[in-house]
């Protein structure tokens, strides 16, 4: 099912959580709402679910105006960050809950629960209680419970937020595979850009109740529409656009944005290069990061492959020349987070 969000606003007291949001989510997509805390991403998800009522605007699910429908009538599945499993029910009973509410025949329910237990790879654990499972297992049960009622839309609020790093990575890959099997239109909220890039077909970057950009992971990373997107998604060097620094850019713009891996280091001066001193070499494992001091004490970071590093034979204190392969500037700096 498709979702159309039309001019949706929501205020909590003085706090503008959503400011005239317009968004279209296509049928069968796996979309990430990405943004820092307070950006409105969870509020937007909860508004789609019907757990929050927007102050203005409308939400259309599958061509039907759902703005004033109850949660129960929207045919959505919702997965919470802290699982929200029914502690007094077994795993089987948890998964069966929605089906029992819908008065499906017991035989069908049993069959469906068996199928879902197999899907989440917890076949042997159906008669346990949630407290007896690990975090990752509980979240899979929560997912199975939401999927049991065959919702038109699956909404996930920071689904991996409460899990440790390793389980989170496994579950992300699993969610991606699951979506490729089940094809239900899915929207998940995350503040982790890596997670959004890895799992989603499309990313909606949000900031302060606005949508900054909508695009595929590649579009978001390679062609950020705003300074905020560029600085929030991926690492970036932000430099004042002083004339002479990276002089291939229009100097009228106030700031210049360059990704650390898009800086070339040279031993000799080159057209549009800037002299710099190597302050520190940081080994990141796969890559080497060089901390460089530009004239006027501006500091930038450049990421190099191990091969490139060996070739350049860099040392702290060395004089080099920096040349950006790709630098950007934006007119909307006031909304960027400079930290």
């Amino acid at each position: 099912m498709s979702i159309i969000i039309n001019q949706v606003s929501k205020k909590f007291g003085d706090f503008q959580a959503l400011d005239r949001i317009n968004l279209e989510i296509k049928e069968g997509g796996l979309v990430a709402l990405l943004g820092p805390s307070g950006s409105g991403k969870s509020t937007l998800l909860r508004a789609i679910a019907g757990l929050e009522t927007p102050d203005t605007g409308s939400i259309i699910i599958n061509g039907k105006d759902a703005t004033h429908l109850d949660v129960a009538q929207r045919n959505i599945g919702f997965v919470f960050q802290h699982y929200a499993l029914f502690k007094h029910l077994t795993i089987r009973q948890n998964i069966a809950f929605g089906l029992e509410i819908r008065k499906h025949p017991p035989k069908r329910i049993k069959q469906k629960v068996d199928e879902l237990l197999a899907l989440i790879q917890l076949e042997g654990l159906g008669n346990r209680y949630p407290a007896q499972l690990s975090g990752g297992q509980r979240q899979r049960v929560a997912l199975a419970r939401a999927l049991a009622v065959e919702p038109g839309v699956l909404l996930l609020d920071e689904p991996f937020g409460a899990l440790d790093a390793k389980v989170r990575k496994e579950l992300r890959a699993w969610l991606r595979r699951l979506h490729d099997e089940v094809h239900v239109t899915s929207v998940f909220v995350t503040h982790d850009q890596e997670e959004a890039m890895e799992v989603a077909d499309e990313i909606v970057v949000m900031n302060q109740g606005h949508i900054e950009q909508v695009g595929t992971p590649a579009e978001i990373y390679d062609h950020p529409a705003t300074a905020f997107v560029m600085s929030f998604v991926g690492e970036v060097n932000i430099l004042p656009g002083v004339a002479g620094l990276f002089c291939n850019l229009p100097t009228s713009q106030s700031h210049v944005y360059v990704r650390p891996h898009e800086l070339d280091l040279l031993h000799h001066e080159h057209e549009s290069s800037t002299p710099a001193t190597v302050k520190r070499i940081i080994h990141l494992g796969r890559e080497i990061q060089a901390e460089l001091a530009l004239p006027d004490d501006f500091v930038v970071f450049a990421n190099l492959s191990r091969e490139k590093f060996a070739e350049l034979n860099l040392e702290a204190g060395q004089q080099v020349f920096v040349k950006p392969q790709n630098a950007k500037s934006f007119a909307d700096l006031h909304r960027a987070v400079l930290s």
């Binding site: 679910a49 757990l51 109850d70 949660v71 129960a72 959505i76 599945g77 919702f78 919470f80 802290h82 929200a84 499993l85 029914f86 502690k87 809950f97 929605g98 509410i101 819908r102 929560a142 419970r145 939401a146 009622v149």
Partner: peptide, 15 residues
């Protein structure tokens, strides 16, 4: 008791 549990029940179609 988490209020999320109630929201979960509502989202599953319970009155």
């Amino acid at each position: 008791m988490e209020s999320e549990v109630e929201e979960a029940a509502l989202s599953l179609g319970a009155s």
